[in-house]
Design a protein around this nucleic acid. Sequence first.
DNA 1: TTAATACCTGAACCTGACTTCAGGTCAATA
DNA 2: TATTGACCTGAAGTCAGGTTCAGGTATTAA
Lengths: 146, 146
Amino acid sequence: MYTIGQVSEMFRIPVSTLRYYDREGLFPDMRRSSGIRIFTDRELEQLRVIDCLKKSGLEIRAIRQFMEWCSQGKSTYAQRQALFLKQKETVEAEIARLERTLDMIRFKCWYYEQAIADGNEERVSEMLPDKLPPEIQTLYDRAHQE
Amino acid sequence: MYTIGQVSEMFRIPVSTLRYYDREGLFPDMRRSSGIRIFTDRELEQLRVIDCLKKSGLEIRAIRQFMEWCSQGKSTYAQRQALFLKQKETVEAEIARLERTLDMIRFKCWYYEQAIADGNEERVSEMLPDKLPPEIQTLYDRAHQE
DNA sequence: TTAATACCTGAACCTGACTTCAGGTCAATA
DNA sequence: TATTGACCTGAAGTCAGGTTCAGGTATTAA
């Protein structure tokens, strides 16, 4: 069992944020001892899930919904599973998106490397849009396909 | 050459957002014809870069900085290159983070699959934290490390 | 000629996710 | 006993990134 200050240190989350999460209903079953919040292993696991769902792009409202489902027991297994299946898609799509972002970034890294070596952008910009070295062309095309 | 409305359609970005970007200085060299914005291929490419930098986690202020560097010419090649090198790290780190998020999500997908099959969480929660099937254990451990 | 459409502006408004503030309780230490 | 430190609250404030609004211009279509 932990106090809010200990949890704040362990997870490196400000105390104010933990209180905010509580206020927003993200710890629906948290106990208190004369007003003071008691974080148990259950709340620590909930915090990991909050973190996961937040990173997966869910907003606080939706996370509260999920936590409510959790405290409603068996009857909500299907909803909870559906949520994770959906977030799996979402995160996979987000990773794919970032890979394309990375293609553009890698192209730009190459571009400035050339420009710096040449002292100007003449040569390199004349290779656009389809006379780039094969590897770079691939990056460029992936970054510029709609 | 395109009007704001055409660009809005092409990139599926609201007109209000394009005007907001302009107001924030993200198109430092955009021309106008009697008050009306003229988007050329240069602005379209800038828009792709804005998109890329936004997805890579940069805020508008920093993107404006970058665009200013661009219109300052050769003297800023090094800064621009450094920016892309940094964003490369950032995005690679973000992808790695999302992969760990995905581990947690995959674990939860499995968890609810079991719970639904069993009709309760008894069996599956008794496997925690280290008696899970090997593949699942890996996901769980990665999601719970730290 | 009038009406619709696409553009323009500055200013105000909105949303999500926190953070800060002012004021209060309580337990332990100096 | 008094002060320190960790906790508490509700309400207000902040910030980024847009969006909406009210009012105006310019071009084309009926």
